[in-house]
Design a protein around this nucleic acid. Structure first.
Length: 643
RNA sequence: GCUCGCGUAGCUCAGUCGGUAGAGCGCAUCCUUGGUAAGGAUGAGGUCACCGGUUCGAAUCCGGUCGUGAGCUCCA
């Protein structure tokens, strides 16, 4: 007998070879019905996996990420089967589950188009109706090779070789007359998959490698009920409405033009948002002991040789000539900052020295990756470089993490952290320094009590780093903040400080950004708030609407009061009906709409209307002004109106 | 950069079989002075992304270029 331990600590004895499904049935029929797979000592297993040890067990349902993964992975097999029934000559590569659905990379005899998606979807429903069992079968490498060779699946043969090379066991999952190479685990049968939607088809490289031939990636999603699918499709539509590229145009924040692909043009409204963020950032950094610097946009190519960028980053840089000398447009700010640090002697007493720079950088990104403000060729980083001694690293990292947390919480953003450590091979500096640095980062994370994901070997060649990812409304994760330790740059620039004992020492450099770039951050803000920016960030904070031209002067004086209080207020002067003017202001997402009619004008009142909330009643002008000032000064989120 | 799709007025989009362009919104002018999401009239706006080809004739068919979208690869 083996002992299974459940998440709540309860235990149960089972016979050797018992399966999670049998265990679930003993507990309750509803659990057996809801269970999709099980977690056995951290291993993801199917419900018919025989248990041959004492273990902790947890049943995975649709509510668990891992449960969804199994569900969608099985759905991917259904997709593949449907495709093979429609195009027997299609060649399959790989078809995993993703964060939201699943895909399959396929080489079609002739490329398919959007119009084929419905056919695939209908065929999938047909396959699902058969409610076929997914049966696992283990094969040796040669059996597997002849199995897929007989079917002409040459991509699968490559996958088999890769699996065999890793010394892993090879298995196929059969469903009806068809079978796919797969590690599993899977659902017991396809009957639990109730609703499917084939979403898109796009190019993808074989095995995800750019050098390989191009296949087509068919993306789809499935749900246990039609209602859940409908809800998901509704959310996709809602997300599209928030697309910052659309809102950016509608709200006249920024634009892109053929004369500068990837180079954003900031319109007056967008510039206000940008400047407010800068102001917020400056306030916090001044308080946190940073000094601000500015370094040139174009610098001699020799500097970029020295920094290593020419060697490692040339592909992404723009070059030019001045007086027949070679120059480069800066893609990063660190060399400029190091030039300042190196321009004068430093004492240990100055450390940690924190030099911040709103550095505008240009990077030649591949044309295909440009994407609104999320991926541009010119952007401004809220950069800073902290020069310190190795023992100071931990404290400084803690302070940066706290600053990031403060800034993100001001916008109501959730985020995830990742720690990337020393690469296996390509790295500079001694193992000792790396260990010290990684230890400092881990200690800092522990001190702030942050949960983080470890990416072993994912650090830069010059040092380990902590990355912060914000999740946007489409579920995409964007790296914004980053904290990177850098042992390389101080070395290359021969930076030094005089230590207590008079010796010359090399400082450690911490490279960090919090917004990451203003461009991307604003893009995320727009989508996060669906364009309804909090009052402190809104390009126009209030608009005054006279009901008739008779109140134009009274309305103008209300506007003057707001302007005097430092608020961004406009006056509507068009002679339209009030309904029309309100509609226009609502569409511009102006947070405060102030209506002045004969009644209000007489008593020094305004009728207040908050965007999205309708009429809030009348209020004395002075009272409203101080309320708005409070919102702005406190950089209040006003969640009730932005949600 | 690669694959596929798309490109018509400031915006959203029609435009049939190849016969040199249309709507709504917005904008301008005039009328209207209306109390919480669209009052009315008139008018201006387009080298149909660009270059080339086929054709008597191209927004429409073909090729190329540029831009853009979905992905891939890469990243703040």
């Amino acid at each position: 007998m083996f002992t299974l331990t459940f998440p709540d600590g309860a235990q149960r004895q089972v016979q050797p070879g018992a399966t999670p499904l049998e265990v679930a049935k003993e507990i309750s029929p509803s659990l057996a019905k809801a269970a999709l797979a099980a977690d056995l000592d951290g291993e993801l297993v199917s419900l018919v996996h025989p248990i041959h040890k004492d273990a902790r067990i947890r049943f995975l349902t649709w509510e668990d990420e891992a449960g969804k993964t199994v569900y969608w992975h099985s759905s991917a097999h259904v997709l593949a089967q449907a495709v093979k029934e429609l195009w027997p000559a299609a060649l399959l590569d790989d078809g995993p589950a993703t964060e939201a659905g699943f895909f399959y990379d396929i080489k079609f005899p002739t490329p398919i188009g959007e119009e084929d998606l419905t056919r695939i979807e209908e065929k999938m429903r047909e396959v699902l109706k058969r409610k076929e069992r997914l049966v696992r079968r283990e094969l040796c490498a040669d059996e597997a090779r002849s199995f897929f060779a007989a079917r002409g699946e040459r991509f699968k043969l490559e996958l088999i070789d890769a699996i065999a090379a890793r010394g892993e066991s090879i298995s196929v999952y059969e469903q009806g007359a068809w079978a796919d190479l797969c590690r599993g685990p899977h659902l017991l049968d396809t009957g639990k998959i109730k609703a499917v939607k084939v979403l898109s088809v796009a190019g993808a490289y074989l095995h995800g490698d750019e050098k390989n031939e191009q296949l087509q990636r068919v993306r789809a999603i499935s749900f246990p009920s039609q209602a859940e699918l409908d809800q998901h499709l509704f959310l996709i539509e809602e997300a599209k409405k928030r697309d910052h590229r659309k809102l950016g145009r509608e709200l006249e924040l920024f634009s892109f033009h053929e004369v500068g692909p990837g180079f954003p043009f900031w319109h007056p409204n967008g510039t206000v948002v940008y400047d407010e963020l800068v102001r917020f950032w400056r306030e916090l950094h001044r308080e946190a002991g940073y000094s601000e610097i500015r370094t040139p946009m174009i610098l001699s190519e020799s500097l970029w040789h020295k920094s290593g960028h020419w060697e490692h980053y040339r592909e992404n840089m723009y070059f030019t000539q001045i007086d027949e000398q070679d120059y480069a447009v800066k893609p990063m700010n660190c060399p400029g900052c190091c030039t300042i640090f190196g321009s004068q002697p430093h004492s240990y007493k100055e450390l940690p020295l924190k030099l911040a720079e709103l550095g505008q950088v240009h990077r030649h990104e591949k044309s295909g990756v440009l994407q609104g403000l999320f991926r541009v060729r010119m952007f401004t980083q809220d950069d800073a470089h902290i020069f310190c001694t190795p023992p100071q690293i931990e404290d400084e990292i803690v302070k940066v993490i706290q600053l990031v947390d403060w800034i993100y919480s001001t916008f109501g953003f959730g985020y995830e952290m990742e720690l990337s450590t020393r690469p296996e091979e390509k790295f500079i500096g001694s193992l000792e320094v790396w260990e010290q640095a990684e230890g400092a980062l881990k200690a800092a994370l522990a001190r702030v009590g942050a949960a983080y994901k470890l990416n072993p070997g994912d650090g830069a060649f010059y040092g380990p780093k902590i990355d912060f990812h914000i999740k946007d409304c489409l579920g995409r994760r964007w790296q914004c903040a980053t904290i990177q330790l850098d042992f390389s740059m101080p070395e290359r620039f021969e930076l030094e400080y005089t230590a207590e004992d008079g010796s010359r020492q090399r400082p450690v450099m911490i490279h960090r950004a919090i917004f990451g770039s203003f461009e991307r951050f604003i893009g995320i803000l727009i989508e996060h708030f669906a364009g309804n920016l909090p009052t402190w960030l809104a390009p126009v904070q209030a608009i005054v609407l006279p009901i008739t031209e008779g109140q134009l002067e009274a309305a103008r004086s209300v506007q003057q009061e707001l302007l005097k209080a430092g608020l961004r207020a406009q006056l509507e002067t068009r002679s339209e009906k009030i309904g029309y003017k309100i509609r226009a202001a609502e569409l511009r997402k102006i947070p405060w709409i102030l209506v002045v009619g004969a009644r209000e004008a007489e008593q020094g009142l305004v009728a207040v209307r908050r965007h999205g909330q309708g009429d809030l009643g009348v209020r004395p002008v002075a009272e409203l002004v101080s309320e708005l000032r409070g919102l702005v000064d406190g950089r209040r989120l006003e969640e009730s109106v932005t949600a």
